[in-house]
Design a protein around this nucleic acid. Sequence first.
DNA 1: CCTTATTGCTTCGACTTCGAAGCACATGAC
DNA 2: GTCATGTGCTTCGAAGTCGAAGCAATAAGG
Lengths: 169, 169
Amino acid sequence: MSETPTSLTATQLGAYFAFTEVSSLLRHAVEKQLRDAGDLSYVQFQLLARLGDAADGRLRMTDLADGVVYSRSGLTYQAQLLETRGLVVRSPSVEDERSIVVAITEAGREVLSTVFPGHIAALHELLFVALSDGDVDELGRILGQAAEHLRANPPRSAAPRRRKPTAAS
Amino acid sequence: MSETPTSLTATQLGAYFAFTEVSSLLRHAVEKQLRDAGDLSYVQFQLLARLGDAADGRLRMTDLADGVVYSRSGLTYQAQLLETRGLVVRSPSVEDERSIVVAITEAGREVLSTVFPGHIAALHELLFVALSDGDVDELGRILGQAAEHLRANPPRSAAPRRRKPTAAS
DNA sequence: CCTTATTGCTTCGACTTCGAAGCACATGAC
DNA sequence: GTCATGTGCTTCGAAGTCGAAGCAATAAGG
């Protein structure tokens, strides 16, 4: 087994800090744009976008959740919100009575197409305007490697997470 | 001025998706590690780390919040948690009675030094093991540019001088 | 068939987060 | 000094998030 360093190089630390900073700032800015434009949270937008991209505009709950790195219970909650607003419809699957299939509605597609251009524009102004084509290329390549690595090494199941000081009764 | 495109290139989209994916996965993994190692949330770790880095191990609430892109009320909440656990101490500033100065305690430094090596190791295994030195270099350079740009174009945050929206009714 | 896992989703409770409103001190204008 | 305004932090209420437990349907074994 390879040894694991107990320190990082200055370059690595710099890259990490830059990453977290961009992540934070970009996320906040994008969320604000989405809320202003279509009253969507980032999660909701991701869900709609994913549905809009899917074959028939329909996906199973689980596939949706996996696509956005999101908890099942959280997805249930957000799907309820979207359904209340009429942007998606949920219906039991015919093939598997356990599954729920979520489908984007016309209203959902409408909201999506209303919000999308602004989202793109925001990304352009917030991020890509500051990067050369070559940089974007490099960024995609490097982060692609990183993503692949992370996907291949899923965090192992957790040790019991202690929320309460275990009031040993 | 420069027109804002309504679409992005495939490369740009790829870079963006890779970024969000790495961001999500890395964040989850790091949070899990911090919780397992020292029962700290990511935010709490950031706060402690920042305090540990500060001159006397003490900072004003506001400076702490600005450093981690975090709301004031959220900081109050987390600082309370940390104080309850004895990892920090809050005391009114002598210079300005309004300010609260947060100081890391010995126990806080201990937790920090307990958690830090694991944090570094996790970053190494999760991220840097997948990247060459040159890639890390490039990543830092590119994201540094992006961060600078985002900092320079505050979506709204650095302009807190908001007149009351004054429901113009 | 029955029994036992497994899978898919929802419900429940606890925790976190944020913004708005509120309180207290500080600063500037007169 | 006194009033008006600004700044720093906390409180409060609403909403979002997660994990564990619960329910229903499918799959696997005998």
